[in-house]
Amino acid sequence: MKPWIKKTLTVFFGTTIALGGLTACSSAYHHRGPMSAEKMAEVRAKVVQRVSNKLDLDEAQKQKLNTLADAVQAQRAAWRGSANDPRTDMQAIVSGAKFDRARAQALVEEKTRLIQSASPEVIKALADFYDSLDAGQQEKVRAMLQQHRRGFMPRA
């Protein structure tokens, strides 16, 4: 198989897996349709409160955590786009007799642009939050990350 075909298929299936994962994760908190704004705010508040309690954050650190949550939420909204159902794009790609390669490539490029444009803000917010933590809090974060390594990820 030619290298450019392999790369195209790898990118497409990687994007499909990412979209499927996001769809699955976003549906974990509800049964039908997208999460409402109220439910999203409720889940976000619970996550922020839980992280704040586990790390014993002060007010300045809580503000940086909220900034991080805002950035992640904005990136998620941009990624999802205006579509009510993320499966719609994939259904459109495979709806004809032939696979719509141009539409699939356009979808991959669109999602890649969205990630690239929003990533610096998310990285900055994450770095600002992490750098505001003291050494003990940073160690707790590292320990939680080590503790939650499951699934297909190999252990180092």
Rank of each mutant, 00 (worst) to 15 (best):
124 K>R: 14
68 L>V: 08
58 D>M: 03
106 A>H: 10
46 K>A: 10
60 A>E: 10
102 A>V: 09
156 A>D: 11
140 K>N: 09
80 R>Y: 12
32 R>S: 09
10 T>L: 15
120 P>D: 15
153 M>C: 07
28 A>Q: 07
101 R>P: 01
22 L>V: 13
97 A>W: 06
127 A>E: 07
128 D>R: 13
156 A>C: 06
143 A>N: 08
122 V>P: 04
29 Y>P: 02
63 Q>S: 11
60 A>V: 05
68 L>E: 04
83 A>Y: 09
43 V>S: 05
46 K>H: 12
59 E>F: 02
28 A>N: 08
4 W>P: 11
35 M>C: 02
115 I>P: 02
129 F>N: 00
52 S>M: 04
25 C>A: 15
125 A>N: 02
33 G>I: 14
142 R>C: 10
9 L>D: 08
45 A>K: 08
138 Q>L: 05
75 Q>H: 06
79 W>A: 04
21 G>E: 06
118 A>N: 13
125 A>S: 08
47 V>E: 04
16 T>L: 14
8 T>K: 11
80 R>I: 08
29 Y>A: 10
50 R>I: 09
18 A>H: 09
33 G>K: 01
82 S>N: 09
25 C>M: 15
130 Y>A: 11
14 G>A: 08
113 R>M: 09
124 K>A: 10
136 G>H: 02
51 V>D: 01
40 M>W: 14
111 K>L: 11
66 N>D: 00
147 Q>C: 03
121 E>S: 04
99 F>R: 14
106 A>S: 15
45 A>Y: 01
142 R>T: 12
76 R>A: 07
46 K>C: 03
56 D>W: 07
97 A>V: 12
101 R>A: 05
66 N>S: 13
149 R>Q: 10
110 E>C: 05
151 G>P: 13
60 A>T: 07
139 E>I: 02
5 I>K: 06
149 R>H: 08
125 A>E: 04
73 Q>V: 07
